[in-house]
Design a protein around this nucleic acid. Structure first.
Lengths: 232, 232
DNA sequence: GGTGGACTTTGCTTTAGCGCAAGCTGCCGC
DNA sequence: GCGGCAGCTTGCGCTAAAGCAAAGTCCACC
């Protein structure tokens, strides 16, 4: 088990560029925490006490407006760094992270971040790349929301989910955690109703297969066509 | 002039946490470049040869889809770091930066980034915070696009522009560089036509004052009300 | 001082997708 | 085994805003 965790950690992009010894030193300060399904790892607006690397499971990161409107910022998979508010000079978490399946994460106290950075500059470089790739994702999403129809956006979202957390099953690729129509709506800037309609239509065409909090892509290639604006 | 530049650089957030000596060492490797109005500092997709700090002027950063749809990612003001593709592990610039007024920037070869980081870890920390705050902005924008009406989004955009690059004038705050209705549309994910209509309506109400590539906010407070969804 | 093009305004038509409402279904807990 | 409810589907009307079209207006350059 410990060695399994080790391999996940060693392959985490954030830790590339560190020697095994350095990695050990860093891991000594971490504690491992279990988060049961549907529990929060941290809540938007609370003090950013820790930063994390996910060892096992999946998290949904969501952000809520003062008016109560909510969006899904992203899903976190094993090996990813998250909750680095401190590194971005934020005192409070800018979003809420919820375990969508039973999950395990390594946690470090935020106060340790400056020390760790000072000792291991490669960490800062890794963090920069992590945050940078999230920035890319966000901007891609803005571009999508400005230029694409809802149907295309939903197709894109499903393809991205499948890529990040897809599991091969008999007739396609299943998204490997429970995800509701509402969640997809909050990822694509639309409503539960519209997502439901779109998925129903696709199910007719044999492109996807649905169910309660369950989505299987049966024809990713054709979905890609829709995402790119052909198909339809 | 040199000392004027010095003070801009010294106050740039990216350089906080560096001693004057360190700053000098870093500046020795930079060259200063003039970009006349409407010229490109770099183009989306080209090799990321340099990274920059803007000394004077304003840039518009825009991103284009393969299909030709375009959005304005952000505007860059004096003192800001930009073009750090290399730090995010990108080989090519992910967007195009255009001078909207005659501008001057300091430029470093991208190849120098790893050395500088190694010598001055504070730089990595600064860059992380810069990129982090851009990530915050992008996510805020996604939230806005998912939950707000066009009118609110335009109000938000104008207020942000005024905050970042506002100049006090006789009856209000003027945005300190030429900006077209089209540009505002590309910032808010709408069309030229809709922006024009909204600004015309606001002009009727005395909230703004328009003109060719010119916007003056006459009643920021009331605009804020609209942005928050009251007013209407 | 005139002319062309870039920028803007404005009216009309169309439509994607939202909001509302009602009903269905499969799962979980008792 | 049976409620009950969370999640899903579906129909209908409505509206914000996009698309289309046509005319102004201002500026820069000749």
């Amino acid at each position: 088990m410990a060695s399994l965790d080790r391999s996940i950690v060693a392959n985490a992009p954030i830790f590339t560029g560190l020697s095994p010894d350095e990695l050990d030193a860093i891991l000594r300060d971490a504690r491992s925490v279990r988060y049961p399904k549907d529990s929060a790892v941290f809540d938007q607006g609370t003090e950013a006490h820790s930063f994390f690397v996910l060892l096992h499971g999946h998290l949904r990161v969501e952000k809520t407006t003062p008016q109560g409107q909510q969006i899904v910022v992203r899903y976190v998979s094993a090996g990813e760094l998250f909750g680095v508010a401190q590194a971005l000079a934020l005192k409070h978490y800018p979003a809420t992270a919820i375990a969508v399946v039973d999950s395990v994460a390594l946690a470090w106290p935020s106060t340790l971040w400056p020390e760790l950075i000072a000792k291991f500059p490669a960490l800062a470089v890794g963090a920069l790349q992590t945050v940078g790739s999230r920035l890319q994702d966000s901007q891609a999403r803005i571009l999508e929301m400005s230029s694409e129809q809802v149907e295309q956006r939903v197709a894109h979202a499903l393809l991205r989910l499948a890529k990040q957390a897809g599991r091969k099953v008999e007739h396609g690729v299943e998204i490997d955690f429970p995800i509701s129509r509402q969640d997809v709506a909050e990822m694509t800037g639309t409503t539960l109703h519209t997502v439901s309609r779109i998925l129903s239509a696709w199910e007719q065409l044999g492109l996807v297969e649905g169910g309660r909090q369950r989505i299987v892509l049966r024809d990713p290639h054709k979905l890609f066509g829709i995402a790119e604006g052909h198909g339809k």
